[in-house]
């Protein structure tokens, strides 16, 4: 050895010792560590990609929800305004001139969650909520509203099942007037007990039970012209 003179045996042995100590400190050595590291980092990459996918789809879904909200809200408000317009008109023709009614929607909230209020203002009285009207007035107001909803989504026929029951004679006449007005475009089938409504009909059917439990139909026709036409 050339460097035998300069070799500091003591120092080297200390160095070896400290290296040994360091190896010892590392603990048991996993020879597969490197390949494991590779597998894990691959996994990490995959997971990160998945996470960004998920974040993207979260954004997408939030956007879709917003779009749905906007479409539904505009649709709802459009329909609401149409119904309101019809309601004001029909109400005027049902009640006395001077009586007014309106629909109000709670402001500054999501129209899809907001409350809808029916405001009626009989002539001379202050505008009140529908709950404070008399029974007949209430029913007539509700019928006006039903018709105004119906007008937004008209169907070729309409069946009315005893909705005129709580109305008095004067209101029945108004109800019939509306019925007559609408019957130009829509066929009405009215189930009723009221004689005045029966008078307004073109065709009348009676249902009886001659034999217990078995319905029988008897037809009476008022309007012979219509009969020929059909």
């Amino acid at each position: 050895f050339d460097d035998l003179d300069t070799f500091d045996f003591k120092q080297r042995s200390e160095e070896v010792h400290s290296f040994k100590q360091q190896i010892k400190n590392l603990g048991p050595i996993n020879l597969l560590a490197y390949s494991e590291f590779e597998v894990e980092s691959e996994r990490l990459e995959f997971l990160n990609k998945q996470r960004s996918d998920l974040l993207d789809s979260e954004k997408d879904v939030v956007k879709t929800i917003e779009e749905i909200n906007i479409t539904a809200q505009t649709l709802f408000m459009e329909t609401f305004n149409k119904i309101r317009e019809n309601f004001v008109n029909i109400f005027r023709s049902l009640f006395n001139p001077g009586d007014e009614a309106d629909l109000r929607i709670e402001e500054n909230t999501d129209p899809l969650e907001a409350k809808i209020e029916i405001i009626a203002k009989p002539k001379g009285k202050r505008p009140t909520s529908i709950e404070l009207l008399s029974g007949g007035e209430k029913t007539l107001t509700a019928i006006a509203l039903l018709f105004s909803i119906y007008l937004v989504k008209p169907s070729p026929f309409c069946i009315l099942d005893e909705i005129d029951a709580p109305l008095d004679d004067a209101n029945i006449d108004r109800f019939n007037l509306i019925l007559k007005q609408f019957s130009k475009d829509t066929q009405f089938i009215v189930v009723t007990h009221n004689k005045r409504t029966m008078e307004a009909a073109n065709t009348l059917y009676g249902v009886t039970m001659q034999e217990e439990g078995i319905s029988k139909l008897v037809s009476v026709r008022f309007n012979e012209d219509l009969n020929v036409a059909s």
Binding site: N202, T203, L204, V207
Partner: peptide, 11 residues
Amino acid sequence: VHFNQGVTSIV
């Protein structure tokens, strides 16, 4: 039941 156009009443 034969229906006509217009108003048909069932009583």
